[in-house]
Structure formats: C-alpha cells, structure tokens
C-alpha cells in the first residue's frame, strides 16, 4: 500500500502555504460563481463523489497484503485512506478554525460590552486560550521546559477530564427525574410501560431472589422473574428496535439516493 510521506523542514511550510493558497483560490472562485451555476456544480461534485463510493463498493475485489493481513481491495480502495480521508480531515480542520472564530467572537463581544454573565465568557476565553497555548507548546515543540507539560497535564487530566466526567454523571439524576414522569400511571399505555420496566429492572437486579424457590428448569422456569425479564427484552424490545432500525436504514438510503442524483429539494439543495 502506498503511503504519503510527511514533508520535513522548510518543505512542510511551503506545502502548507501552497495548500492554503489553492484553497483560498477555490473558495474565492466558488463565491464569485452565480447561484444558478453554483448549485449545478455542487450537484455534479456530489454525484462524482457518490459514484466513486458506489463503484468502490460494487467493483470486484482481489486480496492484497496490508500490514500483514490479507484484505479485499479493488483499484479504488487504496484512494480512500491515502487521498480522500486526509482531504476530509484537512477540510474539517479548516472549518474548525471558522467555528472557533465564531465562538471567540461571541464571547469576546460579551466581555467587551459587559453583557450579563460576561464573567463566564471571560472564563471560556481564558480557558480556551490556555489550553491552546499549553497544548501547542507541549505537543508541537520538542524543546520545552518541563513545567509546560505539568501545566498541560493539570489542565487536561486534572480539570477538563473531571468536568467531563461530572457532566456525564449528571445523566444518572436526569434518568431518575425523566423516568419518574414517564412512569407515572396516567393511562393504559403508561401502566404497561411501568409494569414492563419494573419486571426488567427486577430481572436485571435482585428480582431473582423473589422467585428463587421456583425451579430453573422445565415448565416452572417460565415463572421465574429473570425469564420474564429476558422475554420482554429479547421477544418484545429487540424486534421493535430492529424494525425501527430497518426503517431508519431505508430512510437513509432513500435520502442518500435523492442527494446523490441531485433531485433532493429543501435546505442546501434549492426549492
């Protein structure tokens, strides 16, 4: 498999400058195009991109040795990791800059005009800039003082990771309040929901103790709470979820087809 070499020394800066120049020229040309031409051009590009993946999927493959493993490939497969994925990553990185700019602009204005809650905006600006400075300093520059690593470690592992975990743990409390509202018995459907949930909860926790004396073999095993619980999960819940998944898959297929063929209307595609 062919892998692109990362340019070293001054070449990398030239390469970055070249890519940025070409990108801005393309963006400039696209923005100058009238809307009547821009949409057909985008539809054409979408069609070509879609056609590439369709051909890559349908063309016959032959086994190729990749990192010691035989994998099925055709003439187009190699282009995905070597050209398409890096291009998509570059585009994402460029657009991430735009997103970051928008975020900073909103919060900088909040601070400058001292709008209500401007202190929170200041905290966001300071924390974003700190992470950027220490992150780049620590990762990009090999010859940096030891304390830079320590500060980065404290910011990322000591502050960010813990706050992330704290947000995640909030879900437990929200599940409690949401399930309380959902399980209040107000209708026949809510009663079924409540009963099913209770059986599944008992079956997956200490419910087995209630029917502990019931034999777990033969006809009697049908009266154990674990059996009811797994029956609800496997016979009622799983097929329902799979049916929804089928519908979602078909919906995605139909929409993908409409976009690929340029017949989709609505946001981005014109009325």
């Amino acid at each position: 498999m062919h892998n692109w070499e990362i340019a070293q020394g001054n070449t990398i800066w030239l390469a970055i400058a070249g890519v940025l120049l070409v990108t801005f020229i393309i963006i400039g040309l696209l923005t100058k195009l009238p809307l009547t031409l821009r949409r057909p051009l985008l539809s054409f590009l979408v069609f070509v991109s879609g056609l590439f993946y369709a051909l890559e999927y349908f063309l016959p493959t032959h086994p190729v040795l990749d990192h010691g493993v035989m994998v099925p490939e055709n003439i187009l497969t190699d282009l995905i990791p070597n050209i398409i994925n890096p291009l998509a990553q570059d585009l994402s990185a460029l657009l991430f800059g735009l997103g970051l700019f928008s975020l900073m602009r909103i919060h900088f204005n909040n601070v400058a005009r001292q709008r209500s809650g401007w202190v929170n905006s200041l905290a966001l600006l300071v924390s974003t800039l700190s992470m950027m400075v220490f992150g780049f300093w620590s990762r990009a520059n090999l010859h940096h003082p030891r304390w830079v690593d320590q500060v980065y470690h404290h910011l990322f592992d000591g502050v960010y990771q813990n706050m992330d975990a704290a947000m995640f743990s909030l879900i437990a409390f929200f599940i409690l309040s949401a399930s309380y509202r959902a399980f209040r018995i107000r209708s026949f459907e809510a009663s079924i929901l409540m009963t099913s949930a209770l059986i599944v909860l008992l079956g997956l926790s200490f419910g087995g103790l209630i029917t502990d004396k019931v034999p777990d073999y033969g006809l009697w095993s049908n009266f154990r709470i674990e059996t009811w619980s797994s029956w609800i999960l496997n016979i009622i819940s799983s097929p329902g979820l799979r049916a929804i998944d089928f519908g979602v898959g078909l919906g995605g297929l139909a929409m993908g087809l409409r976009i690929w063929l340029g017949i989709e209307k609505g946001a981005l595609f014109g009325d």
Binding site: I244, D245, V248, G251, G252, A254, I263, E264
Partner: peptide, 22 residues
C-alpha cells in the same frame, strides 16, 4: 420515531420527489 424522521421533509413540504420516495 425511527423513519418518521426521514418522512419529515416530505410531510412538511409535500414535495413530489420526497413523497414519492417515502
């Protein structure tokens, strides 16, 4: 729920391509 999500644009716009696809 489920594929109703993809039915949304057809339902809201009543546009022939979207409804036919549905």
């Amino acid at each position: 729920i489920g594929d109703e999500f993809y039915a949304a644009s057809a339902y809201l716009s009543k546009e022939p391509v979207a409804t036919g696809s549905l």
